[in-house]
């Protein structure tokens, strides 16, 4: 498992753009929002938690179709399937690798972008924590979607259609926690529920992902 994780990370670094593109997209979306809704700091600060979360979610979506597509093209996938590594472990590693290359950089960049939207001072900690808890779930759910669409030639758009509805609970709890934090309320409920979703996703989705991969390898 470690070997696969190391390889995927090395590939992401060497292929270039793996980290950069998602981050750049995140930045651009955040920059576009004030053009759309107007420059009033008050308004921006009120919608900042939601915008930051939605933008992070969309940025994480961008690279999903590459999770299995490259391994499918060059034939690595059947070779991994016949290796001692169970496909469930492959699915888990792919999700983790996607998080390290996408979710983690987005999480770390989010506070900086929070300044652009006048995020309330009290909300920064919550933004960081919810993204840290929530983005792994986004990656794992996305890995499941990628496994469903791996055999399709133009699966990218379909992948978004399949994955975005599955993102709803994570988004709701994440953005809600930041909003409560910004308003000075307790966000404990939302944080606990979001953590529960992430744990549940990592416990069960590797199996569903592996099942989908097996079907697609046939």
């Amino acid at each position: 498992m470690i070997a696969l994780l190391k390889r995927d990370l090395a590939l992401a670094v060497r292929a270039g753009g793996g980290f950069g593109l998602g981050l750049a997209f995140f930045l651009i979306v955040i920059v576009l929002v004030p053009f759309g809704v107007g420059p009033q700091s008050e308004l921006l600060s009120r919608i900042a938690p939601g915008i930051l979360w939605v933008a992070a979610l969309l940025a994480a979506l961008l690279s999903l179709d590459r999770i299995f597509a490259l391994d499918h093209e060059d034939g690595s996938l059947p070779l991994l399937a016949t290796s001692p590594l169970p496909l469930e472990a492959v699915a888990l590693v792919k999700g983790v690798a996607h998080w390290i290359t996408t979710g983690l950089p987005l999480t770390l960049a989010a506070p900086a972008l929070g300044f652009l939207l006048n995020l309330e001072t009290g909300a920064y900690a919550f933004l960081l924590i919810t993204l840290l808890i929530g983005t792994p779930a986004l990656s794992m759910i996305g890995t499941f979607g990628a496994a469903l669409t791996v055999g399709l030639r133009r699966g990218g758009l379909l992948l978004s259609l399949l994955v975005l509805p599955l993102y709803i609970p994570t988004l709701i709890f994440g953005a809600e926690a930041v909003r409560r934090g910004a308003d000075g309320f307790s966000a404990a409920n939302a944080l606990v529920l979001q953590g529960g979703i992430t744990l549940g996703v990592f416990a069960f989705l590797p199996f569903a992902t592996a099942a989908a991969l097996r079907v697609n390898l046939r």
Binding site: A3, R7, A10, D71, G75, S76, P78
Partner: peptide
């Protein structure tokens, strides 16, 4: 073990890295 024309070679990795990866997985 199965091998076909598509042999799971990653072009961004060196020859030894490619082989070491498959060795390690096994």
């Amino acid at each position: 073990a199965y091998a076909s024309h598509a042999d799971g070679i990653k072009s961004q990795l060196s020859v030894t890295e490619n082989l070491a990866f498959w060795a390690e997985v096994h």
